[in-house]
Write a protein that binds this DNA or RNA. Structure first.
Lengths: 119, 119
DNA sequence: TTGACATATCGTAAGATTACGATATACTAG
DNA sequence: CTAGTATATCGTAATCTTACGATATGTCAA
């Protein structure tokens, strides 16, 4: 029933309390949703938590999170694709690090909500 | 290669830089991931943005987001299930509102990152 | 009651996500 | 070069998510 109601409210219709969401806003939220999805995974959250305090190799992160190296690699590249992380090779190893300053704020919000008792 | 390496580092092995992630932390991040997924959707983000400034009915939110009522309803209930929203019926209408104080902080982080120019 | 409105739920099909094993690439030590 | 280490990629199957249309429930007005 909210299909194509964009007229200025006909006499008998319910009062229009809100304007339709501007397309730019929905588009921006589309981007935001992509990035949130990249974060919405227990292993990836843990990786970000570690990487916020320094750089680590794929193998180190894999070991901490108890997942195979290729799974760690896939998750790290996912976060790299959306701009959260960057990597640099050092010999055989590849070090990942945080490449998006806002990650710290977002992670702090998440930790405040989920990593403290009192529900 | 990070399969079951929990021994105290044998002589020839690479230095252990990090301890394995405590299971409680991974569990907490599992919860956090669930909630982030509930947020990781353009329409749901828009709904939260609106609901942070007041209460709205399913139909109003559906119209603003340009989705059918049943889709709006499904998305709202999803966020209700994970504790972000609550609802109250008023006659035929059902009003939703924010039920989790941390939502404001998280949404502010997201808006700062995605709803401002400069990339 | 009947009919209309507002919201919710259900079944389903299309599409996305995930982890896995196998393989490929990159690099280094010997 | 060869073998071994570290990371990345690919194909696949199992699982989840999403939106949709149809139907159900709840409420009010006549």
């Amino acid at each position: 029933m909210a299909k194509t109601m964009t007229q200025p409210a006909k006499p008998g219709s319910r009062a229009r309390l809100i304007r339709p969401c501007p397309p730019e806003t929905l588009a921006a939220f589309g981007q935001a949703a992509e990035c949130l999805k990249a974060l919405a995974h227990p292993v990836r959250l843990r990786m970000v938590q570690l990487l916020l305090q320094g750089r680590y190799t794929v193998g180190e992160l894999a070991e901490d999170c108890a997942v195979p190296d290729n799974v760690a690699s896939e998750n790290l590249r996912l976060m790299q694709r959306c701009g959260f992380l960057a990597s640099e090779r050092d010999g055989r190893r590849v070090y990942y690090h945080v490449a998006e300053s806002h990650l710290k704020n977002i992670m702090t919000c998440i930790e405040e909500r989920f990593l403290t008792r009192s529900k």
